[in-house]
Amino acid sequence: MTDATLAVQGLTHDFGQRRALDDVSFEVRPGRLTGFVGANGAGKTTTMRAIVGVLRPDAGTVTFGGASMTLEVRRRIGYMPEERGLYPKMKVAEQLVYLARVLGVTKDDAQARAASLLEGLDLAERRDDLLHTLSLGNQQRVQVAAALIHEPDLLILDEPFSGLDPIAMDAMAERLRDRAAAGVPVLFSSHQLDLVERLCDDLVVIHHGRVVAAGDARALREQRAGRRYRVDVGGTDAWMPALAGMTVVGSGPEGTLVDLDESADPQALLAAAQAAGPVEHFARTVPSLAELFAEVVR
């Protein structure tokens, strides 16, 4: 496959009178982690279900590497549904082997992969326990293993981090990075914006069924950054520059925030700051993902 990009094009879906998805379009590029953020009920899960073919949207198309999502293509997706789903009364390893075989993996391969995944997730000694005897966190790890068991070409993970402790979260992030590095497009939704910010290469923000921002995460934030600078002059708590085209929007122990209009030169601000004392910090501020999110969904 030369271009393993997942393309979502114009997805629209109604639940009765309510429009759940409204012309949703975005791409998930190979080798990149794409974070999918939005408030509860914004349409994340519906979009993911439409991608994996569990839900048939009223309109719109999904393609993977240019091909439509036939059964053969869908069987190459690693999917983790929002509400976790495994057989509670089946043994952990047996369950993984069964799912792998349903997805077309041979019995020997399935057993080998189940063993190595469980090993990697620190669950090797629980392999013959019934799933429902495991703690929720451990069940969650088995769910991760279930999504990875057939070495999928595409990962669609709905809230993969919810319910994980910080250590498991790091392990999970590591795993997703691995898969992305292997060239697999990874789409995952999360409410934990700091985590998404730290992890993601690309971002899709959805609000009330519409995509309000999509693309390279860094670029999106830069775009919204504007011309706000933070200046921290050592020794002064409240340095208040009075320069043409500049407005002080706040000051505090972290320094002074200054908005520059189109004509103002940031270098003039720096020069003024240096004249006032030793400059400890001078930079354009980029909004955090939380700020960006708050802004785009407003």
Partner: peptide, 12 residues
């Protein structure tokens, strides 16, 4: 148990 969602994604 919602297993069906995983199965339906991959099996008619």
């Amino acid at each position: 148990s919602r297993v069906v969602e995983i199965l339906v994604a991959a099996v008619p």
